[in-house]
Design a protein around this nucleic acid. Sequence first.
DNA 1: CCCTGTTTATTGCCGG
DNA 2: CCGGCAATAAACAGGG
Length: 313
Amino acid sequence: MPRPGRNTYSDQKPPYSYISLTAMAIQGCPEKMLPLSEIYKFIMDRFPYYRENTQRWQNSLRHNLSFNDCFIKIPRRPDQPGKGSFWALHPSCGDMFENGSFLRRRKRFKVMMTSDHLAPSKTSEAAHYLQQHAKLRLSALAATGTHLPQMSSYNLGVSQPSTFKHPFAIENIIAREYKVPGGLAFSTMQSMSAGYPLHNQLTTSWPHMYSTSVIDSAAPISMASSDYSAYGVPIKSLCHGGQTLPAIPVPIKPTPASVLGLSALPHHIPAFLSNSPQSMSPTSPQTATSQSSPATPSETLTSPSTFQSVAVH
DNA sequence: CCCTGTTTATTGCCGG
DNA sequence: CCGGCAATAAACAGGG
């Protein structure tokens, strides 16, 4: 229907709901959490469609952040300048788009609401996790070489927590190749770092995706330009502070506690499985996808399991 | 004041 | 057809 062969494609609304867009943004950043403004930026950078009517969609997006339990708010450190909090994904929101549609989730993610208030501490676990996450990255960075090399930092962040990739990881959303059960994490990694398949049959192609300069090449969704580095470096800013903590520990969600236990691990295997892994390995230089991360995921992995969420109706 | 969040209401669409 | 999800509008509180 639309007219192919024209950049006009960019005018079209991307086949993603605000929820998925936001999830992409969050998962796409190394810290797994972003302030509102960065989420906006992320979306606008990649989807030209959203460069207009900002007032409208941003309001909607904000509404989504507050309304959906799958997003948690993480307060900023008091000493950290800036407005607003950070937004992260609830650790147990799982694969909300299992059905393959990024427009409509199978079920709305709702944090379990136990009649009696639960220990508020439960909620904070999420933050803890994030914190941990960031911490790990930090140390990793420190180890490699303080001044984070833009790219590697990304890789680290992604491949670090022993493949505990959120189903939401952009790699999974954009390049929904699928995830390997346990075996050849190899090709998976490869395909991931190789950039998402811009032209696979997921939806014929991603006309909506505006590949600025080189997004595709190596940095899938994360920072590809200086633009993004604004936040690709929170670590840095944090470091200079002297302490190791990322943004802040406790997330605050109006929602009561949640007790969850890794609700069913997503083992979805999208239909696109048949796709070639590296659809079109563009120019994937560096990467190397090394799994050299020495980090001990011990806690990292376990913590999230403390959460309990439920897809409630 | 503008940005960030929260909340309520309305409407359209999709899937069961 | 009905219920649930998503998009949009809009009012409103709080903060820098």
